[in-house]
Design a protein around this nucleic acid. Sequence first.
RNA 1: CGGGGUGUAGCGCAGCUUGGCAGCGCGCUUCGUUCGGGACGAAGAGGCCGGGAGUUCAAAUCUCCCCACCCCGACCA
Length: 567
Amino acid sequence: MRWSQMHIPTLREDPADAGAPSHRLLVRAGYIRQLMAGHYSLLPLAIRVRVKVMDIIRQEMDRIGAQEMLAPTMHPAEVWQRSGRWDTMAEVMFRLTDHKGAVNVLAVTHEEIFTLLAQELNSHKQLPQAWYQFQTKFRDEPRPRAGLLRVREFTMKDSYTFDLDAAGLDVAFDRHRAAYLRIFERLGIPAIPVEASSGAMGGRDSTEFMCPSSAGEDLVAHCANCGYAANVEKATSALFPVIDADGPVAPERFDTPGVRTIQDLATAYDAPATRQIKTLVYVVDGRLMLVLLRGDHALNEQKLMDAAGAVAVRPAQPQEIREALGALPGSLGAVAVSDLPVVADEALRGRQNMVTGANTDDVHLRGVDVDRDIAVGAWADLREVAAGEPCVRCGHPLELLATIEIGHIFKLGYKFTKAFNITVLNAEGERVHPIMGCYGIGVERAMAAIVESHHDERGIVWPAAVAPFAVVVTIAQVDDPESAKVGESLYEQFAAAGIDVIIDDRDERAGVKFRDAELTGIPVRVTVGKRGLAEGSVEITRRATGETVKVAVADALAHVRDALAGA
RNA sequence: CGGGGUGUAGCGCAGCUUGGCAGCGCGCUUCGUUCGGGACGAAGAGGCCGGGAGUUCAAAUCUCCCCACCCCGACCA
């Protein structure tokens, strides 16, 4: 390719509305342009990167025996009504009506469609199956952000496995997990596999692949010592033990005028947060529920959703709380509450001599024994891990990392094969439902994650495996016949050798071309100019290090190969 | 959905307070000089000032309504 003929609209200044490095650089280096919030056009350089990312994913999927297919992006409403997700995914689905008045949806994901295709599996002899595609997903995200990191229209590699039994699913899941680790390794993404909540997808085990980045939206608790890693939606930590003194035989009321916070109570009434019971009131799938945590612990709402098997949770409004408990936040408690379900965090188990609200404004209770005084309906892990707490496995202090979720794999179970009544005959001649797994990688988000982890102040630094071009031949002076001739000949030679090469033949000053080569992130630059040719040499510069070596024209190919091997 | 911010040439911005010819830098076109790290000079092209309504002799500027985009939160594979 010739730079002079490609559409690579690099910008001299940073775009005003881009904050995240990947957003800023992909726009500035001429890879993407925004159409509207969450919808981007991919320009020629981006398409070249995308193809390489997809090829790597495809190779690894094929390697584990998965078969590529392609399902439609528009689906009839009826299919989603059958699975029950017409309602549960209502707020993220784009819906549209055709000329007959039939309602269709744009694909949010494709479990339903691939499950329908599995209708034609009849025998256990046809299992296992692993199917995948690269297909556009539409999600009506409430807040798209940061360029390609969170969009409303994107390409996903999604795969779906069908196995005869749980043991088979375990194998399929482990194969995908290994394939994903290889994919991210090849893409140059430092992915950390973490335990995750399955969220709205349902199912049991799920593993997310997270790329540490300040632009990330997910928090991961990570142990640098033993490698434990989990999304804070799922992460646990060890706790320093708390010894409770024996308390009174019954809770005692005491006045606490003006006290509204844990901190107020701790400082003014000698009640350290670790000895307080924090009482939160939540609306869980439409029902009020009391949520109890230790005073110094924070609730993770996803954990509450998982514990309650709920679809939606929200904090109750003050008037709802007053109607239910007779007091406002600041003086709430669960002692003697019998008409509302109570869920308590594990950290409160067995605690005694605690302090909590009395459900009368400006009054608290001391000497509360959790087992004796509170009708806990369910115990669950509800608290969000905090940085510095000891790792559950090894005790080393945990760190919290901001991360980008670049892949997610689920053991789905029987949800869809039962909903669509998909069965095969097993070896005994019985009808059984196959068990499913589903697995996703966001392609454009992966591209953004690569940029997030591979850039410097001059621009993008693509790993060679995904760079739009491996090499740029930069002719320092296009009007110098010798430079042009040598540049063209090296370009031909590299291309013939199978190297993805672009020649920068623009009639621009050398500095402009150097800057653009760096901004766009091409791993190796071969500079051809009068200065070097005077002594029969060209220069080879590695983008990642800036290191430049002079080599004889005849040796350029060998040196370029070396440089690429190390990029 | 709540809070904050921004919409003026392809990009980055000033002008708005106090109404009076729509500007600057970059980029773009042509010519000349220059040319291995975002050159210089000269001459040009390029505008629904986000949209609508209103106030006024007069609106980019004041008022009202709407829309879009960005950020924080909520939410979300």
